[in-house]
């Protein structure tokens, strides 16, 4: 683990998030606390439906989610007050589990438009083309890929490589990888992981790695592991925690969480006489 002198820090405090509106509103995140510093890699592990992806999308600003409490700051700046694009320009990046097709927009046009937005000026054409080619080669992507439309007809592996390609080129301060390992075969997982590791080796980025499985952690070694159940972090530790989860699964945590929820519900139902 390396901690740069002037590293960025993402701080999440007591974050509460709901989906739906009015009576249909459902609380998904129930008080998340997390601090990610540049140079650190955090794995967030949890069962399906625990709210891992909600955390990722809430930080990125997806309009489907409503923040009902808590704070998110990047280097002290209020992330929750920013629009989606402002968050990206501030240095946040979300590699999505299900990247969206954008018909008629080529990968090369998309990448250059995004880079121009994030850097605040158009990158110089010659060096930019060289950079894109080098990064694509590093991710074992065919150069013809650049002329295809964004995510249109991409295989699962191509989508994830394209997400990591964007991360490499946009050089975020905090990168959130949402189930980047899902749907990848072993070769693709290796290639994608190596791409992430190249960014980590440069030491300038904090990584929040969201995953259901421990498989990707064999390629990307986390500094911290957080177990995420029912909308909050229920245990934290080092890499050894991932091994424990590999062997024992989430069952114990889910049981604890259910019991706690029952107790809370029972307490709430006690009517003062």
């Amino acid at each position: 683990m390396t901690t740069p002198q002037n590293g960025s820090v993402l701080e999440i405090r007591d974050l509460h998030v709901t989906v739906g509106e009015g009576d249909d509103a459902k609380e998904i995140l129930r008080g998340v606390d997390l601090t990610v510093r540049a140079g650190e890699t955090h794995a967030i592990m949890g069962p399906n439906g625990s709210g891992k992806s909600t955390l990722a999308y809430s930080i990125a600003g997806h309009p489907k989610y409503t923040i009902t409490g808590g704070t998110v700051t990047l280097d002290g700046e209020d992330v929750l007050a920013m629009t989606v694009d402002e968050r990206a320009r501030a240095g946040l990046f979300l590699a999505m589990q299900y990247p969206v097709e954008v018909p008629g927009v080529s990968v090369s046009n998309f990448l250059r438009t995004a880079a121009t937005a994030v850097k605040g000026e158009a990158p110089k054409l010659r060096t930019w083309v060289k950079d894109v080619k080098a990064e694509m080669a590093g991710l074992e992507m065919d150069p013809a890929f650049a002329e295809r439309n964004v995510n249109e007809g991409f295989s699962g592996g191509e989508k994830k490589r394209h997400e990591i390609l964007q991360m490499r080129l946009l050089k975020p301060r905090i990168a959130i990888l949402d189930e980047t390992d899902s749907g990848l075969d072993v070769d693709a997982l290796r290639v994608v992981s190596e791409g992430v590791n190249r960014t980590r080796a440069e030491g300038e980025v904090g990584v929040l790695l969201i995953t259901h499985y421990t498989r990707i952690l064999r390629y990307i070694k986390p500094d911290f592991v957080h177990v995420f159940v029912a909308g909050r972090v229920v245990e934290e530790g080092g890499p050894e925690l991932a091994e424990k989860l590999e062997n024992e699964g989430y069952a114990a945590y889910v049981k604890d969480s259910n019991e706690q929820a029952s107790a809370e519900k029972a307490a709430a139902e006690v009517v003062p006489s």
């Binding site: 990125a60 600003g61 997806h62 309009p63 629009t83 989606v84 694009d85 968050r87 990206a88 320009r89 990046f93 979300l94 999505m96 990247p99 969206v100 954008v102 927009v105 046009n109 998309f110 438009t113 995004a114 937005a117 994030v118 964004v150 964007q166 946009l170």
Partner: peptide, 17 residues
């Protein structure tokens, strides 16, 4: 959302689409 999450402002994103 996808385009904006890459730093592209909403109006530019709409034009691109």
């Amino acid at each position: 959302f996808y385009l904006c999450s890459r730093g592209i402002d909403a109006e530019t994103a709409r034009r691109l689409v």
